[in-house]
Design a protein around this nucleic acid. Structure first.
Lengths: 149, 149
DNA sequence: CGCAGTTTAGTTGTGCACAACTAAACTGCG
DNA sequence: CGCAGTTTAGTTGTGCACAACTAAACTGCG
């Protein structure tokens, strides 16, 4: 096998491992609030949609790149936890709007410190992080284009 | 929230998304062989250990950063698939050596083209990939150090 | 208008990934 | 030596992540 193929395989493994290491940092912090990382991502989207119509399940899926097979049970758990409400759209009964209830809004304040708690863990400075973010985003975009055809 | 905290959050999300996009590329290729990505990683380690003693479950775990809770059922599936054999060590009966059987060795040849099939997907050149691999490895190492204390 | 085809959310089943735990085997200190 | 403490693999239970599928609702072409 050529060096280039070995390198590409190492990148895949590094990606797999780094992603899990990152989740390891989030886990104990989010556990304080009874949340998982994907649940936290859903809340971040809902908090950002403050001024807009509450998103539908597929709208959340488009932003987080998750399908209903993952989101439906996750949203059910958030609903049981008393953070969100799901409401069938009157205009189009296929659609389900996902809305924060007061407890879900209140969590925004209570979790305000989470990003700061996370900040130290990577050991990278802002310049490295910009390059990393942009490289990862480029890979993700390329792969999605590649899968279109 | 400061720009730096937003950036760090974006990096976490980019990592989570890129890791899943990478798995999306592997999935159909590995499905031809009835394997998942973590199963493929185990086989890569076993193929590399050709000259050495077959690794134990915890030895595999150390290399892949997975614990027995993940590996035990995964290895059971590889055993059912007829690719590996698990054998209690005679010297220390707590240990279980994981060995490839002939079908597991034969798969090495049959999968020789997998890295090439994967190579095109990222759209990055070798220089970018070296930086990416090293940055990801640094993050993973920093996080593991950070969790030690 | 009506119905073929599409969109939407949800379900079912499989396989990680991990926390918490168990049982068996081993180690080394007193 | 013996037993407290450790190591090892495995189990149980929870929550993604995804493929494949279903049912209900909608859309727009003929």
């Amino acid at each position: 096998m050529t060096d280039d193929l070995v390198l590409r395989r190492q990148v895949c493994f590094a990606l797999y491992t780094a992603s899990r290491a990152m989740a390891d940092v989030y886990r104990p912090i989010l556990a304080e609030f009874g949340l998982t990382y994907p649940q936290y991502l859903v809340l971040l989207v809902l908090w950002e949609c403050e001024q807009e119509q509450p998103p539908t399940v597929s709208g959340l899926g488009a932003r987080l790149q998750l399908d209903s097979g993952t989101l439906s049970p996750l949203l059910k758990r958030l609903e049981v936890a008393g953070l969100v409400v799901r409401r069938r759209s009157a205009a189009d009964e296929r659609r389900v709007a996902v809305e924060l209830n007061p407890a879900g809004w209140a969590l925004r304040e209570r979790m305000a410190d989470v990003p700061r708690q996370l900040a130290q863990a990577t050991g990278l400075d802002a310049d490295d992080l910009v390059i990393l973010r942009d490289t990862l985003t480029r890979i993700t975009r390329t792969i999605h284009q590649y899968k279109e055809q």
